[in-house]
Nucleic acid binder design. Structure first.
Length: 267
DNA sequence: AACCATTTCAACCGCTCAGTT
DNA sequence: TAACTGAGCGGTTGAAATGGT
């Protein structure tokens, strides 16, 4: 599109940040808050690209970042979220407070991939490696058209699936109950990932009137219907009451689509 | 102690999306 | 409606750190 570069490359520093640069950035954001990254470097007296400032702040300087090792629980959460979402690192990071998408992406590539391989699991498809060659083809091939973002062979820049979880997908994390699990009970359907209890609530855009026939919506969604589709993982994961999931009240149940992880089918 | 191989992770790049004009 | 702009995302890179011989 011939867009202008995000910064004047000739006059920007690159590479590792110095302590002084960090201090400048921290001081500026403390004083003025985040926002307008493009103009921030100049205002803060930094010879850096706005994108670089944002990245530095988000991935390293933010005070709420949790640094240190991932726990085994974190690992499992990441693995299961990746099975559900594919390489949507920012969404996965949203479920791990204090962790950044970049950190999770790196951790996935350096640790979890190997961990899964050692278990004989394909890190992309989350299916057994041996004899699981069909994994890429079975079900998952149709999943992208069915709306689930296929975690299998992920192209560098996959075309957005018809209904796939879009960028504006929201994960609602209900206030945790005392036991830390607000929504495990009451399930009548056995979840696909029974030990995954993240109270995920995916919703796409403002809920509107449901499709005339849910079945038709599942099989032949119009683009409008796609935009109005609500994907409720709370439901899928066993949440039925409105306590932890407000989407049922916001949208007609008929408007729900339920995702079946891995198989990429609506339940 | 020195060298080489491997691993880790901060940072960059290119792209898309959403908002604005 | 189209063009433009800023923000954010995911893939990739390369320097630094670590481990092995």
């Amino acid at each position: 599109m011939g867009r202008s570069p995000c910064c004047e490359k000739a006059h920007t520093n690159k590479g590792a940040w110095t302590k002084e640069e960090d201090q400048r950035l921290i001081a500026y954001i403390k004083a003025h808050g985040e926002g307008c990254w493009r103009s921030l470097p100049k205002a803060a007296g930094l010879l850096r690209c706005g994108k670089s400032c944002r990245l530095r702040w988000m991935n390293y300087l933010r005070p709420d970042l949790k640094r240190g090792n991932f726990t085994d629980d974190d690992d499992e959460i990441i693995i299961k979220l990746h099975a559900l979402l594919g390489n949507k690192w920012s969404l996965i990071a949203g479920q791990l407070p204090g962790r950044t998408d970049n950190e999770i992406k790196n951790y996935w590539n350096t640790h979890i991939k190997r961990k899964l391989l050692s278990r004989g699991i394909d890190p992309q498809t989350h299916r057994p490696l041996s004899g699981g060659s069909a994994a890429a083809g079975s079900g998952l091939t149709t999943s992208s058209t069915a709306g689930f973002p296929s975690p299998s062979p992920v192209p560098t820049r996959p075309a957005r699936p018809a209904i796939a979880i879009p960028p504006n997908v929201m994960f609602a994390r209900p206030a945790p109950s005392e036991d830390g699990h607000s929504s495990s009970g009451g399930s009548t359907d056995a979840p696909r990932c029974p030990d995954l209890n993240l109270d995920l609530d995916l919703s796409v855009g403002p809920p509107c009137s449901p499709p005339k026939t849910p079945a038709a919506a599942v099989t032949t969604p119009t683009s409008q219907q796609q935009q109005r589709t609500t994907i409720c993982l709370c439901y899928h994961l066993g949440v039925r009451s409105g306590d932890a999931c407000s989407c049922k009240t916001a949208a007609s149940p008929a408007g729900f689509r339920f995702l079946r992880p891995l198989e990429g089918q609506y339940i």
